[in-house]
Nucleic acid binder design. Structure first.
Length: 903
RNA sequence: GGGCGCGUAGCUCAGUGGGAGAGCGCUCGCUUCACACGCGAGAGGUCGCAGGUUCGAAACCCGCCGCGCCCACCA
């Protein structure tokens, strides 16, 4: 117990704003968050933070995941703090360069100055982004500190750091040499917004209603596919194709039907004439075509549709690119349309077709349209020369790791989602036409066209010595993110950090980046380090707005966690988020944050009260010497120690099971429902002021024992709650712990099983039930709150709790078996477990209400009794239910009978 | 089209085989010597609907209705 108790006298409220900054300062100065790179990963504990975007700011997802990871980190740091075997706990911190997002931000800022990035030039632009990063790159890290996140702030990484960049280049070269990375002309998801290719995973489908046009293409007479505009005499029949994108027809190079389609068997091998263009299109058979959709005749545009691209490859069709990287029609689309945006071109094409009478039907059509997750613009599938990575070999061990449980996914219903995706994994388009990012370590020879790939830029071509030109493209941001858990620790060098903290223990994230990031880390980790990067993947909730919509700035549904911290304190926000979290999406609950705030304040006041009371009751000198330890004198002491042991077991188990909401709410229930509502109220009177006690000539020993027990319980509770609500608990530790040690570096309480006392629990629970019953009765009959009512206890099993029942229910209990008093007439009976309390005086009571209440109580007891009797007379129940259940029902019957008789 | 999940008190959610719960809100009472961001007491629920399994179902199974999310190449 610390000497500074007097400070607490006037602090009747916990004020987070006053203590959060100084406490953060003490934590940072202590070095607790910056462990030495000692030992091996197997004996240490580490988590690599999902690196936030460098120019981002803390949103609810960060706040939740930060709280979760911090609980795990603080728990393990404390768990091993008292241990004899040395163990380090590290939360690896850093930020992600976030290619497209950051580049877009800077471009936007430049636009404000009236400059485009092309005007600035690559070198100057990249310089500007670095400056931007210097300016805004520390925001989110500072915000994590406000949350109380105990990351290793002294060892912050960035995915574009020099060492990290070397690791990225190194991986590229290795994968290239294995033949997994290759360059290809392939149809990609082109994002006209960021003017770059993006990966499949960065595409989101939106439901939209478009017009489905049915267009008639004429068929040439005969089978030959001769060139030149047809003369009308050569036309023989037609096909009707359906499309929502008429503008792409300008790039059609075939018409397809299903090979089994009886209706069109004769068409295969014939030639259709592409309206507006006149190109001759072979009619081909491909089983991709659905016979039961539309007319069963499909236009094939290999350059602008992923399916058509595949079909084109199978049939060796021409690729005619009519839409360019700017989203506008190319020269190949013909003079009439070239230069128009795709949307404009659509109108123009439709108008031209309509003029020719070729549109035979139009209908509204709802379908999924691809949009860029990054820029929000509609994806334009087109053929482009890009770099790809083949994932099939990488996926195999990553599938096995999850199948074999070497990587555990929690909750495990995400396991199958992961496995399904991995089983069908496709090549990954890794090149981006951006300037901000890891430029590919690829050098083209201007003389012999040889492709040089090397970590360090070669002087000249390895084949011919010719001049080299470096690839302009950069890598997909997720390529570097995939190396996060080990590249942050110095890989490919075998550093002490890598040895001490890799593999990490847990990766915590929302499910939206399970494929984008988590799966790729597992694949890359296994391939490059021979070990899985983490043994557990914890997938946490997505927090939605209170109305169930997505939380987003643009919708105006966002809630800023920092505002919430300002208002309620970091502990409250952490507690609230943890209490909300679940295995599924949840709505933001201001009430849960309020609950957290209340808990922090409650714990603060409970501790304050206990310390002040102990101080006043033992005197300053004795209080200072006091050694907190369990020294139970009474049944309530044994009860609270037993309950404490139980909540200690439960909390540790819940944290280890990633059951954060129950860990949080369980602590709340213990602090409120047991420690404060009952234990403190029960023992108050046992700690009178020192002078009073001395006047009464009381022995100091019972007070010392109670003080020792009380402070033991509070210290343990405060320490137990620390990983969830670190600020208030650290603040209280200053008063509870004389040595000045930080709670963050102190051992975590582990249940003392020897303190479990089920008899005490039964007794106190019974007494609490009785108190509640009497209080309810008092309230309903209008008894004054403070009035002490004469009564007689008519129930067994209250030997040790008789006094506390009287005190808590404000009864003056007549001693049993004492002549005159015992003979007093009972005017009212109140049912309590195992019997009744008989009220001996009616002064100031509403007797009609009392009677109504008695009747209601009787009715309820009868009803319950009947149900139990029914159950016990059911032969099926007696024969088939477990003996313990039958026994419990028998006991219940006895108890209810007793209570009913007492009324 | 495939998959995952949800539907319990006015609201947000726990509870997954044996007496319907919490927080907030609401009602009543209380300046009770830690806390009025407090204390005490209370009202409020055919556990989405219908069937089945079981001695016993909010929970397990089948179907239906409603809602959400993820994946997927039907123009």
């Amino acid at each position: 117990m610390s000497e500074r108790i007097a400070e607490l006298e006037n602090r009747t409220r916990f004020e987070p704003a006053q203590i959060e900054a100084p406490i953060t300062e003490r934590w940072l100065e202590s070095g607790l968050f910056h462990p030495p790179a000692q030992g091996e990963a197997g004996e240490n504990y580490s988590i690599a933070i999902p690196p936030p975007n460098v120019t981002g700011s803390l949103h609810m997802g960060h706040a939740l995941n930060g709280s979760i990871q911090d609980v795990l980190i603080r728990y393990h740091r404390m768990l091993t703090a008292g241990s004899e075997e040395p163990s380090q706990t590290k939360w690896i911190l850093g930020t992600d360069h976030a290619g497209i997002a950051t580049q877009a931000q800077v471009e936007k800022a430049l636009a404000g100055e009236g400059v485009s990035r092309r005007e600035l030039g690559r070198e100057q632009f990249v310089k500007r982004v670095w400056e931007w990063r210097e300016h805004y790159g520390h925001t989110i890290v500072q915000q994590l500190k406000r949350l109380g996140a105990s990351c290793d702030y002294e060892d912050e990484r960035f995915t574009l750091d020099e060492g990290y960049a070397r690791a990225v280049a190194d991986v590229f070269v290795r994968m290239y040499e294995k033949g997994w990375i290759y360059r290809d002309r392939y149809i990609v998801n082109w994002d006209p917004g960021s003017r770059s290719a993006i990966s499949d995973l960065e595409v989101e489908e939106r439901r939209e209603t478009d017009t489905l046009y049915s267009i008639r293409y004429d068929l040439l007479d005969g089978g030959s596919a001769g060139q030149g505009p047809p003369r009308s005499s050569e036309i023989a029949g037609s096909v009707t194709i359906a499309t929502v994108r008429p503008e792409t027809m300008l790039g059609d190079t075939a018409v397809a039907v299903h090979p089994d389609d009886e209706r069109y068997r004769d068409l295969v091998g014939r030639t259709a004439i592409l309206p507006l263009v006149g190109r001759h299109l072979p009619v081909i058979a491909d089983d991709y075509v659905k016979m039961d959709f539309g007319t069963g005749q499909l236009k094939i545009t290999p350059a602008h549709d992923p399916n058509d691209f595949e079909i084109g490859a199978r049939h060796d069709l021409d690729q005619v690119s009519v839409i360019g990287e700017d989203g506008c029609m190319t020269a190949e689309a013909g003079e009439r349309f070239a230069g128009l945006s795709a949307m404009r071109a659509r109108e123009a094409v439709v108008a031209a077709l309509r003029e020719q009478g070729r549109i035979v039907a139009e209908e509204p059509y709802e379908h999924e349209v691809p949009y860029s997750h990054r820029s929000g613009q509609r994806i334009e599938p087109l053929i482009s020369l890009q770099w790809f990575m083949d994932m099939s070999e990488l996926a195999k061990p990553a599938i096995a790791a999850v199948n074999d449980g070497i990587v555990r996914i929690v909750p495990d219903n995400h396991r199958r989602v992961y496995l399904d995706w991995m089983a069908n994994i496709r090549p990954w388009c890794i090149s981006r036409q951006l300037w901000w990012g890891h430029r590919l370590p690829v050098y083209y020879c201007e003389t012999c066209a040889h492709v040089n790939v090397a970590v360090v830029a070669p002087e000249s071509c390895s084949e011919c010595g010719g001049h080299l030109r470096r690839e302009e493209d950069v890598l997909d941001t997720w390529f570097s993110s995939a190396l996060w858990p080990f590249a942050t620790l110095g890989w490919p060098e075998q550093t002490p950090e890598l040895r001490a903290f890799y593999p990490t223990n847990v990766l915590s994230t929302a499910r939206d980046i399970l494929f984008l990031w988590v799966a790729r880390m597992i694949m890359m980790g296994i391939e490059l380090t021979g070990q899985v990067p983490f043994s557990d993947v914890y997938i946490h909730s997505v927090i939605q707005a209170p109305d169930g919509r997505r939380m987003s700035k643009s919708l105006g549904t966002g809630i800023d966690p920092l505002d919430e911290i300002d208002r309620h304190g970091a502990d409250a926000v952490r507690f609230g988020l943890l209490a909300m979290s679940s295995t599924q999406d949840v709505r933001y609950s201001a009430e849960k944050v309020g609950q957290g705030q209340a808990l922090a304040n409650k714990l603060f006041n409970a501790t304050r009260f206990a310390l002040l009371r102990v101080h006043a009751s033992l005197g300053a000198a004795a209080a200072k010497e006091l050694e907190p330890e369990p020294m139970p004198c009474t049944v309530e002491d044994r009860w609270i120690l037993s309950r404490l042991a139980q909540i200690e077991t439960d909390t540790a188990a819940r944290i280890e099971d990633y059951d954060f909401s129950h860990a949080a709410l369980g602590l709340y229930d213990f602090v409120y429902g047991e420690l404060c509502d009952w234990y403190l109220e029960l023992v108050k009177h046992r700690l009178p002021d020192l002078e009073v006690a001395q006047q009464r000539a009381e022995d100091a020993r019972p007070r010392e024992m109670l003080a020792a027990t009380l402070l033991y319980v509070l210290r343990r509770t405060v320490a137990l709650a620390h990983p969830l609500i670190p600020f208030v608990t650290e603040e209280l530790w200053r008063y509870l712990e004389a040595s000045g040690e930080l709670l963050a570096g102190s051992p975590y309480p582990r249940a003392d099983e020897g303190l479990v006392d089920l008899d005490a629990e039964v007794e106190i629970e019974r007494a609490i039930e009785a108190v509640v019953a009497v209080r309810g009765w008092r309230d309903s009959v209008g008894a004054r709150a403070g009035a002490v009512i004469p009564a007689r206890l008519s129930a067994p099993c209250y030997e040790d709790t008789r006094e506390l029942l009287a005190r808590m229910a404000r009864l003056s209990l007549t001693p049993d078996g004492h002549g005159a008093a015992d003979a007093a007439e009972a005017v009212v009976s109140i049912a309590i477990p195992g019997g009744s309390v008989e009220i001996l005086s009616t002064e100031g009571l509403d007797l009609q209400a009392a009677e109504r209440r008695r009747e209601a109580a009787q009715a309820k007891l009868r009803e319950e009794l009947e149900r139990v009797q029914r159950k016990l007379s059911n032969e099926g129940f007696l024969a088939k239910a477990p003996a313990a259940v039958v026994q419990a029902e028998r006991e219940r019957l006895a108890r209810l009978t007793q209570e009913l008789e007492a009324l």
